[in-house]
């Protein structure tokens, strides 16, 4: 899932300063699960904004509502008219949600209410960890299910480096050394010798470094009747 964190309230208040009729749009998928931008968070933010503006003597009309996914036209379609009724939309969806809204409704002013962090999962209640960078050329088969591109601070393919100490990374004693974990797993599975192969430089052209990526699959395309 995509993990996000709400922007600091002060930044949100500042962004919305000049608007009087505001829609706060939650997203019912990833950001709901990571408790950053679902209906509950949208309502809380609406309340905080209302109180703030009352104090500032700049009253505001705020409504909070949520669609299942901001990253799909179909769901945006269902609330198109309602969205058009606000001066501005504060989207609590991830960066994809904000952009999908703008692309579907170019006349809309949409501001981001969250900082999109990463792709990962909830390790425990209240803790979300990053696990994928979307590099476009998965190496998890080589590294036995532990991603060094994401979890190693230097994204090295031939590790662990000389900064690995007691299973932790040199950048932070709280951070696991991904390559230590890989080494451990290789050892358990009797595959340590595989680490002796020099992994060649990564092809970053299939990652974001090659420019924005588009996946096209002709066989599943639909004729939308346009």
């Amino acid at each position: 899932m995509i993990i996000a964190e709400r922007k600091p309230l002060q930044q949100i208040f500042e962004m919305l300063k000049s608007y009087r009729r505001i829609g706060i749009l939650g997203c019912g998928t990833c950001v709901t699960v990571c408790m950053a931008g679902g209906q509950k968070e949208a309502e809380e933010l609406a309340a905080a904004l209302t109180i703030h503006r009352r104090r500032e003597k700049e009253p505001v009309e705020v409504e909070a509502f949520t669609i299942e996914r901001q990253c799909e036209y179909e769901y945006i379609e269902q609330v198109k008219d309602r969205l058009a009724g606000y001066e501005v939309i504060l989207s609590l969806g991830c960066g994809v949600g904000v952009q999908t809204l703008v692309e579907r409704m170019p006349e809309l002013r949409v501001l981001p209410g969250v900082n999109t962090q990463s792709m990962g999962y909830p390790l425990e209640q209240g803790v979300w960890v990053e696990r994928c960078l979307g590099c476009g050329d998965c190496v998890l088969h080589v590294t036995l299910g532990i991603c060094p591109i994401t979890r190693c601070a230097k994204s090295i393919l031939n590790g662990p480096c000389g900064g690995s100490s007691g299973g932790k990374c040199e950048i932070d004693p709280e951070v696991d050394c991904a390559w230590h974990l890989i080494h451990e797993r290789m050892e358990k599975m009797g595959r340590l010798s595989e680490l002796q192969a020099i992994q060649p430089p990564k092809d970053w052209s299939v990652s974001h470094h090659g420019g924005p990526r588009t996946v096209v699959r002709e066989e599943v395309k639909l004729d939308r009747g346009q």
């Binding site: 601070a153 230097k154 090295i156 393919l157 031939n158 020099i198 992994q199 430089p201 990564k202």
Partner: peptide
Amino acid sequence: KGVYDIDSMQLLDG
């Protein structure tokens, strides 16, 4: 932004 396009092993090999 840390670059880390290649790692030290790949640098040596390269």
